[in-house]
């Protein structure tokens, strides 16, 4: 089985998490590019045009990830990459939404395509990514 290599942009301020998750993505034959804050993430999504974004919700401030996601999915600046699937990752379950449901839309925020809790199970992460890339 040959898989077309896809490019994944990982936006996370935890360098250890980035390193571990990179190993997982490479093992799934994905190409990885990284950003350590939302500002760098915004530059990279435009310059690298990844096939998918893995986005930490809570970086410096509580809702960094939410505003990044909302900007990419709604603002004109990101029109060219608007359809890039985004997966939220978070160490705090109630923020990631897997436990309490996405709450950002109550404030009119555009939601992600999927959520996953940290720590991620390698096989599960790769399966979720494949599912989004297939659609």
């Amino acid at each position: 089985m040959t898989k077309k290599p896809s490019k994944i942009l990982v936006i996370d301020d935890d360098q250890d998490f980035v390193e571990a998750v990179t190993v997982i993505l490479v093992s799934g034959s994905h190409e990885v590019t990284t950003a350590s804050d939302p500002a760098e993430g915004k530059k990279k999504i435009l310059s690298e045009k990844p096939d998918l974004v893995l986005l930490d919700i809570m970086m410096d401030s509580l809702f960094d990830g939410y505003s990044f996601c909302h900007a990419v999915k709604t603002s004109k600046e990101f029109e060219s990459v608007r359809n890039t699937p985004i997966i939220f990752v978070s160490a705090v379950k109630e923020i990631a939404g897997s436990r309490f449901g996405f709450k950002g839309d109550e404030q009119g925020m555009a939601g992600p395509d999927d959520y996953i809790d940290k720590p991620v199970k390698p096989a599960e992460l790769l399966a979720r990514i494949d599912k989004l890339l297939r659609t």
Binding site: F17, A20, I24, K118, P119, V120, P122, A123
Partner: peptide, 14 residues
């Protein structure tokens, strides 16, 4: 969680 993530990767053998 960062520690857990390293463990997951090591245990998965990747």
């Amino acid at each position: 969680v960062a520690i857990q993530q390293y463990f997951e990767v090591i245990l998965a053998g990747i």
